[in-house]
Design a binder for these strands. Structure first.
Lengths: 177, 177
DNA sequence: GGTTGTTATGCAACTATTTGCATAAAGTAT
DNA sequence: ATACTTTATGCAAATAGTTGCATAACAACC
């Protein structure tokens, strides 16, 4: 049940509508926990029912009425509780590695194409993380503790993608040879 | 729908019961795609209905009757089809990184404990992969193509865990300072 | 003699996620 | 003019995965 906790994290600083939370997921937190707007709206409804967030409707002139969600004291307490208990690990699920495992059943071109796609994706993400780093964390050593933590989660992404790139390049070399 | 394809991969060489397939997942393929026995039994039932596998019951003297599943021609065709189309990537879901992102809300000891747990887990996995490597792939350059592919998927695991260890150690240094 | 582990299967209930659809109005680009 | 994107919400159905339980017999260990 981490989706609700991820939502609580996005709301712990700033209140927001389902739409805004969806955007925060797309740009920031979503790199660690992806969620669609349908999921987020549903979860917000449940969270409101359980008093983890409060919702107030705000009518707008030109745009549809929006519902602004704010974390409650209960929500904050629940977030802290969750942060303090060890989380069990997500099960790994990587379809590409299953394919590679059985790659001898198809021809090399397919594998190379997939490997290239993986490589391109790792490179895109790494470039994106690099931009975030340059933009938000130009001097990481000088950051206050809070941003230092956020920066660390970004470095995790950078490390993963770098390792992924290296592995893809090495593997491509094997198949091209 | 990769579970069924992972099952087809395990059956592409050797037939097996739900129980045996579960074990194969636990030891081998399960490093890329985890699945419980309940899931596997259900999926096998569906796959039998759709003629991707055939099942035959085998009575045993001392043990319960078992159902041996074998991949059919249709199943093999479906596996090849799946292997040849680019797979969309699994959404990332890493609860630990959400926690780290919001780590400033709790005290450092909790974060250090979690980081140590992550580190221990990465080390365990790396050690395990190292054993698999020594056992099954002592001389990777000399492997026939099929085993070369399997070996590559193992090296992916090794690369990921190594990167994870490095990052955990670096991050722990930040928090301990 | 009792507990634990292995072999072997499965149902039922629940939670989580995905996919497809629907509405509605304004802004922006071709 | 027309098409696409953005803002803003949501329902419904389907698929996927988790958790808890149940059965049954033998083998190994203490």
């Amino acid at each position: 049940m981490s989706l609700r906790h991820a939502i609580l994290v996005t709301l712990s600083d700033t209140e927001g509508t389902g739409y805004e939370i969806t955007q925060r997921f797309t740009s920031g937190l979503g790199h660690f926990w992806q969620a669609s707007h349908q999921q987020i709206y549903q979860e917000l409804k449940r969270m409101a029912r359980e008093k983890l967030v409060s919702a107030r409707a705000v009518a707008q002139e030109t745009r549809p009425t929006k519902k602004i969600h704010r974390i409650t004291a209960t929500g904050r307490k629940e977030l802290k509780r969750w942060l303090s208990v060890p989380s069990k690990r997500q099960p790994t699920r990587n379809a590409f590695l299953i394919k590679l495992f059985a790659a001898h059943l198809i021809d090399r071109d397919h594998i190379i194409t997939e490997l290239e796609a993986q490589l391109a994706h790792h490179r895109d993400l790494l470039a994106h993380y690099g931009e975030l780093e340059a933009l938000h964390f130009p001097e990481p050593e000088k950051l206050p503790f809070k941003y230092r933590c956020m920066y660390l989660s970004l470095t995790r992404g950078i490390a993963s993608e770098s390792a992924g790139i290296q592995w893809c390049e090495d593997s491509l070399a094997v198949f091209r040879k």
